[in-house]
């Protein structure tokens, strides 16, 4: 049971991590044309960095950590240059050149990220289902 619950915990952490990825991809899509932010300049695309969890645990030190979860190490901003579009009528256009700086978000790429994260979420749900079925079968031994 201990191992199985650790496995469910690991899958649960992966579900939370994938949910974060989906949220970040969604906010990138939502802000695909935000030209004004609190820091000035257009919205910068954000990315999620994932890292294995429990790397410093007691079991890991003994080399016995079987189920290792995942956690969000951080959400970083993409340093790619902004897109520039000529639109003199835009309120945020450069008064001299007439160029508008748009976020460095590529909606197609974000959709791919979004679907990837959604599929990964489904994969982890399937893993939880496998463990749930194993436990249910083991309990049937008593019947």
């Amino acid at each position: 049971m201990g191992t199985l619950s650790a496995a469910v915990k690991a899958s649960g952490s992966a579900l939370a991590a994938e949910r974060t990825r989906i949220e970040v991809a969604l906010s990138n899509i939502a802000n695909a044309s935000s030209t004004r932010t609190a820091d000035g300049g257009p919205y910068r695309r954000r990315d999620v960095i994932l890292t294995p969890d429990n790397v410093n645990s007691f079991d890991a030190a003994l080399g016995k950590a079987s189920a290792t979860g995942v956690r969000v190490a951080g959400i970083v901003e993409d340093t790619e240059p902004f897109q520039q579009v000529l639109d003199k009528s835009h309120p945020d256009a450069d008064p001299v050149t007439g160029l508008v700086q748009l976020p460095n978000v590529n909606t197609q790429d974000e959709m791919v990220d979004l679907l990837q994260a959604a599929r990964a979420y489904q994969a982890n749900l399937a893993a939880v289902t496998v463990i749930r079925d194993m436990v249910a079968r083991a309990l049937e031994l008593g019947k």
Partner: peptide, 19 residues
């Protein structure tokens, strides 16, 4: 909270009760 966390917690409770 997350939906999956709630469901996993519910499942844990159910499994423990069944055991």
């Amino acid at each position: 909270g997350d939906v999956h966390d709630a469901m996993i917690a519910l499942h844990h409770a159910e499994t423990t009760l069944q055991l």
